[in-house]
Simulated assay, not measured.
Amino acid sequence: MTCRMLLSALLPLALTACGKSESKADDMAGMDMSKEAGKPADKDAVVLSARQIADAGIETALPTVGGIAGAIELPGLIQGDPQGMQVVSATIGGRLVSLTRNLGQSVRQGDPMAIIESREAASLKAEVEAARARAGLAQSNLRREQRLFAERVSPEQDLIAARTAATEAGIALRLAQQQLGATGGGGGALNRIAMRSPISGQVIARPAVLGQTVDVNAELYRVANLKLVTVQISLPPADAGRVRPGLRVVVSAAGRKQDGRVTFVSPVLDENTRLVQLIAALSNAGGTWRVGEPVTAAIMLPSTGDRSVAVPSTAVQSVENRTVVFVRTATGFRALRVVTGRRNGDQVTITSGLAGTERVATTNSFTLKAELGKGGEMEM
């Protein structure tokens, strides 16, 4: 009886204690959850959905591994291709009676461009006519002697003499024709000679004046085939050792950019500048470049072949005095601290912080920097 009464008295007390213990445990659990919920997020993370990334125009790419294809940027000057620029000069002294081309006009190889009236021209043409007449007479005598010899009327020595005279007359005619041809030939009248274009191209200079008396070798026109131009660049000797023919050259000026190729690296220094002359060939079929135009030339050096990591300069940002790149994660991006090295063109070497397998934000990474400063979550 006494034991039963004692159990009845203790049971309510035990239940009360258990209830207090469970309540306390629940309170502690609630505190832990509240503490977890209030835990600050990764301060270097930017939470973005795929749609938000696309809308922000953020693009990603893998870093370049294996060394930067460096560039040497130097001023250059557009020049005509030496093989594609010719001077039309007077091959004979006299008076200019016709100039058939103006600046900018196109010409074909062999087109007459000027006509010179000269006493020397008359003499050359007269010599051709006289040599032609002598050659004709010699051929006629040769045919007669051949016929007479066949009829046994003339001796063989007369035939040999006629054959020799015909040969000599033919040589004299060809010589006279070649002398006339060396001056350009043609021109119409007996005392006129035509000056012809040696190449096809465009007239870029015309110093001659109609009616002017010119001496032999006087410049009349300058013709250039500008479908191919060259870029002249002067290199410091230290850089010249890294450049060889065949390397790509990016030529730019006033919103234009085009690739060319190195064709010549001088083996000697210029006596005045002490620099090395470099020539690069550049296609100009569309007339994009003008002779004498200053340009910027970037000589693209070959890869170093090492395992260094490089990213575009647009991928590198400064956040709270740290240099970072934004690496793609499952939930968006994370600012990863890096150490940068040398910069070549639009590429920056990353000496520490990247393995080369991460996808990094290369376009509009400044947007991620701004979002990181606002708390790491982009507003919808």
Rank of each mutant, 00 (worst) to 15 (best):
G353A: 04
T60D: 06
T100M: 08
V360K: 11
M33W: 00
E271M: 02
S303F: 02
Q146F: 04
Q177C: 01
A166K: 05
N364G: 06
V250H: 01
V319Q: 12
E22P: 00
R334P: 07
T183C: 13
V229K: 09
E127K: 13
A298K: 14
R334T: 09
K227Y: 07
T263C: 02
R108W: 02
A69K: 12
K227M: 14
S303E: 12
D55H: 06
F333M: 08
L220S: 10
V46D: 07
T91G: 15
A335W: 03
V153P: 02
V348Q: 01
A240S: 15
G184N: 09
P12A: 10
G94C: 05
L77I: 14
D27A: 14
G246Q: 00
A45F: 04
V107P: 01
K24A: 15
A122V: 05
A280C: 04
I72Q: 07
G305E: 07
L226S: 07
R359W: 08
E377A: 13
L190K: 03
E168Y: 08
T296R: 15
V262K: 07
T314L: 08
I68T: 13
G80K: 08
D346R: 08
L6H: 11
D346S: 07
V291H: 02
A361W: 00
L6P: 00
A297M: 06
F264K: 09
